[in-house]
Design a binder for these strands. Structure first.
Length: 273
DNA sequence: CCAGTATCCTGCAGGC
DNA sequence: TGCCTGCAGGATACTG
């Protein structure tokens, strides 16, 4: 479900409503997520710690705690973090609930269980395999200079490269499709067969579409919502993703909807080359 | 090392 | 109506 703009939307909501609060208690079930949810450890570590701030790295969310430590969260395909009144009914597949005082709970809900919630002790962040292998932050200035040559050095299709979190961390299936359409590049085009100026354009378009989506609070396709329950407003601005078979807004040619690397891939045969 | 595929899991839409 | 199949915004363990 969530790519960089959706995770950033979640981060900002938590910063607004949960920063400064202290975790009083934790409950849930030790289910198998992408990593096993170690409820016993979370119950040992979290209570009494204050949420000092929230950071994002790629599609990962980091809740900084004081005394030091951090909670690592990934939303996978269907994960949600919700800020709720404690009296509100639990949604199905609520795996973890942290009480933040008498009037507020932070809940992690994830039907498909591709997400994760994990404790990171002081210093564990640099050693965590998921975090340490992440590539460039796509909205960072560095991406403009460093990403084009990295893409140019690889033979894989551009779309697969944009989705590779070790190269650039935060782009998923929606925004990869949008960036490639905006840049006029075929998703199947091999990186090393793409001229550097075109790769620079791709990075610019990637930054533009991610930035606009962040400004709109992300994209809600089926069920994304911020922790306050707001839906993202960017879906109406998607011009390629989800528009297979419809005419390309730029040239009128019907969009192709095929599969690349097991993911649905919408693109325009006429203006993406 | 690199590229491509299979796999984890539930919910839902569409075809019959 | 009900059953079946395939697909969904992701990451990663495999294979060759």
């Amino acid at each position: 479900m969530p790519e960089l703009p959706e995770v950033e939307t979640v981060r900002r909501a938590l910063e607004r409503h949960a920063a400064g609060l202290t975790v009083e208690s934790v409950r849930g079930h030790a289910v198998q997520l992408r990593r096993p949810l170690d409820l016993a450890r979370l119950r040992r570590r979290l209570p009494g710690r204050r949420l000092s701030g929230f950071r994002r790295r790629g599609k990962f969310l980091l809740a900084d705690l004081d005394p030091p430590g951090a909670l690592l969260v990934h939303l996978g395909m269907s994960g949600r973090l919700l800020l709720c009144d404690p009296a509100a009914p639990l949604l199905p597949h609520t795996h973890l609930v942290a009480s933040l005082g008498p009037a507020l709970e932070l809940r992690f809900v994830d039907p498909r269980r591709f997400g994760l919630v994990d404790w990171l002790g002081p210093g564990a962040e640099t050693r965590d395999p998921s975090l340490s292998e992440l590539g460039i932050e796509p909205l960072d200035e560095r991406a403009v200079h460093e990403l084009p040559p990295l893409l140019h050095a690889r033979r894989a299709p551009l779309k697969a490269l944009l989705l590779d979190q070790r190269l650039v961390a935060g782009v998923g299936n929606i925004y990869a499709a949008e960036a490639l359409w905006r840049a006029g590049l075929r998703p199947t085009r091999p990186g090393h067969r793409t001229a550097l100026p075109r790769l620079e354009r791709l990075v610019e378009e990637m930054q533009a579409v991610l930035g606009e989506a962040v400004d709109q609070g992300g994209t809600t396709i089926r069920d994304f919502a911020s922790p306050e329950g707001n839906f993202g407003d960017f879906a109406v601005r998607l011009q390629a993703y989800g528009h297979g078979g419809e005419p390309c807004p730029r040239c009128g040619e019907p969009f192709i909807d095929d599969r690349l690397g097991g993911r649905s891939t919408v693109w325009c045969r006429r203006c993406q080359r």
